[in-house]
């Protein structure tokens, strides 16, 4: 660069390297970096939750099972592969918590599906009964149809259900060999288990989450999925 006078050169020197262009560039890249770091931090946090539950060998929550759905068709853990699944354990004779939670679950499913990109893996709403003696496929069919048409309701023998509950770390207190028509309640855990397309447990969603919050959590995990 050439300057006509010494003064001119001196003034340029005094303005230093801080021109307004450099300032704007500095601010923009700073703001950009802040956003990027925040995004990455949130992503890493979700990855940590998802990875923490993956384990090296067997997953800690979930695992293979074979049950039947409300249409008497066999349904196994293999049918969950390649899809996300939201798994809830309950029973149809539940007084107040399960129906509230199932209404919430239906809302979550609709919220996620309404805004998920077409390329995202599917999300299956799965209800597994803790009360196989009373929750036969026909009972589940009429019960679940009041919540969401896409619900998959699973039941099996007392032993099969006990094993599934064990795999999902669900507290199982259902008595064996109850008489038909007997009136009793069942204790069970009240979490939604989000399972990834590999069949691995991702995160538990509890009663404290609103359907909107839960849908946001699910969508964020689905957005991270690359395979």
């Amino acid at each position: 660069m050439k300057y006509k006078t010494v003064q001119e050169q001196r003034s340029r020197y005094h303005s230093g390297p801080f021109s307004w262009k450099a300032g704007v560039l500095f601010l923009c890249s700073g703001i950009g970096l802040i956003y990027y770091f925040r995004y990455e931090k949130a992503r890493m946090e979700r990855k940590r939750i998802a990875e923490a539950t993956k384990g090296v060998g067997k997953p800690k929550v979930g695992g293979p099972f074979e049950l039947i759905d409300q249409h008497r068709k066999p349904f196994s853990s293999e049918d969950m592969k390649g899809k996300y699944a939201l798994v809830y354990f309950g029973f149809s004779h539940c007084p107040d918590i399960c129906p509230e939670e199932l209404d919430k679950m239906a809302r979550m499913i609709d919220l996620v599906r309404a805004s998920a990109p077409a390329s995202a893996p599917a999300l299956l709403p799965i209800f597994i009964t803790c009360d196989p003696a009373r929750d036969t496929p026909a009972v589940l069919a009429s019960y679940l149809s009041e919540f969401h048409p896409d619900f998959i309701g699973l039941t099996g023998t007392w032993e099969q259900i006990k094993q599934v509950c064990k795999k999902y770390r669900v507290y199982f207190s259902t008595p064996d060999g109850v008489k038909p028509g007997q009136d009793y309640l069942v204790d069970h855990s009240i979490y939604f288990y989000l399972m990834d397309p590999d069949g691995d447990f991702v995160e538990a969603i509890g009663r404290q989450h609103s359907p909107e919050q839960a849908a946001a959590i699910i969508k964020a995990h689905m957005g991270d999925w690359k395979k």
Binding site: C94, T136, P137, A138, V139, A141, S142, Y143, P180
Partner: peptide, 14 residues
């Protein structure tokens, strides 16, 4: 129900 098991209370009954 169709298989002879009593159905749980529905939404109205609840």
């Amino acid at each position: 129900s169709s298989d002879g098991t009593p159905i749980a209370p529905d939404r109205t009954q609840r």
